[in-house]
Amino acid sequence: MDITIDRIMQNFDVLTDWEDRYRYIIELGRKLPPFDEKYKVDDNLVRGCVSQVWLVTDVRDDDPPVIEFRADSDAQIVKGLVAILLSLYSGKTAREILTADIRSIFEKLDLAKHLSINRANGFASMVKRIHELALATAA
């Protein structure tokens, strides 16, 4: 992901119509780097009742270590939300991940409802999984 979370937030500000915002979210999803089919296995699956997310992580051995994420979803809006999340989290240290205020960012984007723990949605479980991983790396 070349785009930063700040840039995404600026672009969101310009879009006042909710249909345009969702078009932009979908567009962000389409720009995610291709996700190799061979990684779409159960071990990488964050299961939801309706849609699912696949998440792969690489910990780069810097000091402190940096965590890279790659992800995909079968639903396009979820995939766009995943892209926003990766712009915030991928290539960051565990400390940066744990201190980023995802809720306030999603509230500003008017997308906070997608963070609610709903079994329909693999996305909220993915946020939880990223946090757990950051905690494990920081430990």
């Binding site: 909710w18 249909e19 969702y22 939801g48 009742c49 309706v50 849609s51 079968d74 639903a75 396009q76 809006i77 979820v78 329909a120 949605n121």
Partner: peptide
């Protein structure tokens, strides 16, 4: 081939409550 989750999310924006899933 639009995912039902996407259909449900957009309908929700329009105030329409439906169920998506299996």
């Amino acid at each position: 081939d639009i995912h039902p989750h996407d259909v449900g999310t957009i309908l929700d924006q329009a105030g329409v409550a439906v169920r998506a899933g299996h």
